[in-house]
Nucleic acid binder design. Structure first.
Lengths: 404, 404
DNA sequence: CCTATTTAGTTCGCGGCCCGAACTAATATC
DNA sequence: GATATTAGTTCGGGCCGCGAACTAAATAGG
């Protein structure tokens, strides 16, 4: 049960009940479409009459449309309702160090168009390049009015100012991306950390998501990020900094991390860590001077995975060691947060038949295993980083009403 | 923004608005009493007419009473409203390994009566001893009708079955405390882990709590517990197991913990850890056979704190080392969850002027310090473990309405 | 072919709720 | 004692969900 925040609450008006029920109906349609009014009444517990009025309102506002008639064994045929995909389009933007992907999505979170370009070093330059691409994407679908723009970033956004505080992998810090894009497009822009985006994508569009109360998204790439959905809600933390479990120290006085501390989880369990493991195992000891190591460290994780696939023993060892370390961190998360599901995201999931059991074993060994947490790989084809940006914008209409 | 859980939601009826506004008004009265209807209207944003109706209803249901007239510089004097302390009494029970405390509290969470007895080994025996004491406490205040019973435990309660799953320090496992007490008293019983109780106490009754969205309660005693309030809500986790950060591994292949794993935080930062540090530093190396160590380990933490107070260098070192380790764990919590406040609870807070700075320093050194988290000691006189049980029961009336 | 049955969806009056304007009550200032 | 000011109440209007009654449309069976 939540405590009412008396510094920031909302009283109920005569329209509050409708707002609540409307959102419930809209979500039932989203997840069960096509669905009849009668079934909506059954699922929601509302009266058929109430459902009819709400449906009429939603139709008038173009959120839903009436489709074909359904079939029933007896009696009048139901009239199916479904989301009006043309009601709202969303621009999703996934910024990654190497490239940025833009997509135009419909209300079903399906991507109607998608394009990528190389992420430029300078953020100002980046914005200049980004804006016309957004505008083209919007213009290409004049029949769908765009509702907003969601952006997923490998960095941290301040909750209050909405400025990008820092993004080490991009080399950006204290950048205002929101204002220029909003000014240029006239659309609301929502920024969010990539791991948080993934968590939102999984809870809103994932397969294992309905009814799940606590879900963690662990993104494993050059670093490790963690998006936390707790009590059906994204945890952002006091300044928007929640989820930096990748920088939790798992090794006392361990290797130095780019964050300045030592022994961080991501130093041992990220793609870069696996690359380091591999390099260390292959570089001959007498050659392991600082210089040669540096060079050798540049094994791309892609290549490492391919070697692993091809049966290279040292690659396999490196990947397994990485998996074992991923498990250590996940064990920590399970011990502390006892979520229902942990979704692992990243290239490593391509080797899931191999690493899944190792992670599970490591989790079992390192945790206080009373919680029953499922650990599942995300489907990379679902593009969670990008899809989460859709949720970011849709939350406004489909999220729970803010009440009390 | 929360996602609506379509497997478990509640539609709005015509009374929903009243329920929401009533709870808001009741909470405003609780925290601002005495307060006039006019001020309630100002604080809440509701119309004066609406506030009057709600107040009338609350008076009829005996939740509040009209008190003296207030003063204003001009115009009619306001009629003050305040909680009717006699409306509801709550029995709070704090079970600890050595002793159990019962209290009878009023709506202001003030303890009107309190008593303790030695906790018995056998849970069945314990219940037999507990029940008449509860009944006496209720009978002693016939003018106050008791609303419910809250119980705080050094163990874990299953969310579904409400059974005590295990409590290592009590030596109990799989016990049903709820049913027998409910049967004997006819009152609803709410069980909760001690650290969670503390977290609830701090967010509902703490000084630093209004407007705080994320608060962690870290209880340091023989072990370490952690209660998490995130987004104004207690995190219970999938099976009620959330918060076992005390059993997160901070040292790889570290010392064995009673949980079966190695290197857990509480092995290094609990009262027992400090006792061990002290013993290790005082026992002469040639005498450190297994037997003598065992014996020496039984330094009570109370005594250690007293020695520390008296200026004993080795005691001081042990306490400082403990503080430093507490900081390491707190650093992890801050890095991962970025709460607004962390409240530390336990005997160690008596030495706060000494340990506070050491904890702060350790946190700074071990965390990714972008979150601005206040670390504060709890006031032991507020009896957080016990007071949290009051919140447990009061939540039903004062918590946010469950909607959508 | 016609009737009874069943299911879908609509209409409408009722009561609950909040709003806001108008009104009463009480007090201080001049 | 008139005026201004603040507290609190009354009442009509509009929104909302409920539920009974009603219309619409289809099937089963004689």
């Amino acid at each position: 049960m939540r405590k009412i925040d008396l510094t920031n609450f909302q009283v109920a008006t005569s329209e509050t009940a409708r707002d609540i029920n409307r959102r419930i109906v809209l979500n039932l349609i989203r997840t069960h479409q096509p669905i009849s009014r009668a079934d909506l009444a059954r699922y929601s517990g509302l009266q058929r009459s109430t459902v009819s009025v709400i449906a009429e309102q939603l139709i008038n506002e173009r959120w839903i449309t009436e489709g074909a008639n359904g079939h029933s064994l007896r009696g009048r045929r139901p009239r199916f309702l479904h989301l009006n995909k043309e009601r709202a389009g969303i621009i999703g933007i996934n910024i990654r160090p190497a490239q940025t992907t833009l997509a135009f999505a419909d209300l079903d979170a399906r991507f109607l168009a998608q394009e990528s370009f190389a992420t430029t070093q300078d953020p100002k330059h980046f914005v200049v390049e980004l804006i016309p691409r957004i505008q083209n994407l919007i213009r290409a679908r004049p029949e769908i009015t765009c509702e907003g723009i969601g952006v997923s970033l490998p960095g941290r956004v301040d909750l209050g100012t909405k400025r990008l505080v820092f993004a080490p992998n991009l080399g950006w810090s204290d950048v205002d991306l929101k204002t220029p894009i909003e000014k240029a497009t006239g659309l609301p822009v929502e920024l969010e950390n990539a791991a948080n985006s993934c968590a939102l994508a999984e809870i809103w569009f994932g397969r294992h998501a309905e009814g799940v109360r606590n879900l963690l998204a662990v993104t494993v790439s050059e670093g490790i990020g963690c998006g936390l959905i707790l009590n059906h809600q994204l945890l952002q933390g006091s300044t928007g900094m929640a989820g930096e479990f990748g920088h939790v120290a798992l090794v006392e006085n361990g290797l130095e991390c780019r964050c300045g501390n030592r022994g961080c989880w991501e130093v041992y369990a990220s793609n870069s860590a696996a690359a380091r493991y591999y390099t260390e195992s292959t570089s001959r000891p007498w050659k392991s001077t600082k210089g040669s190591r540096r060079a050798a460290r540049n094994v791309r994780f892609e290549d490492l995975l391919r070697l692993n696939q091809q049966g290279d023993a040292k690659a396999r060892q490196a990947v397994n060691r990485m998996a074992q370390q991923i498990g250590r961190g996940i064990a920590l998360l399970i011990t502390g947060l006892a979520p229902d599901v942990i979704v692992v995201i990243g290239e490593i999931t391509r080797a899931w038949p191999q690493v899944g059991p190792i992670i599970a074993e490591s989790v079992k060994r390192n945790s206080f295993t009373r919680a029953e947490t499922r650990i599942v790989p995300s489907d990379p084809s679902s593009q969670p980083r990008l899809r989460g940006t859709i949720a970011l914008v849709l939350q406004k209409h489909f999220g729970a009403p803010s009440v009390a």
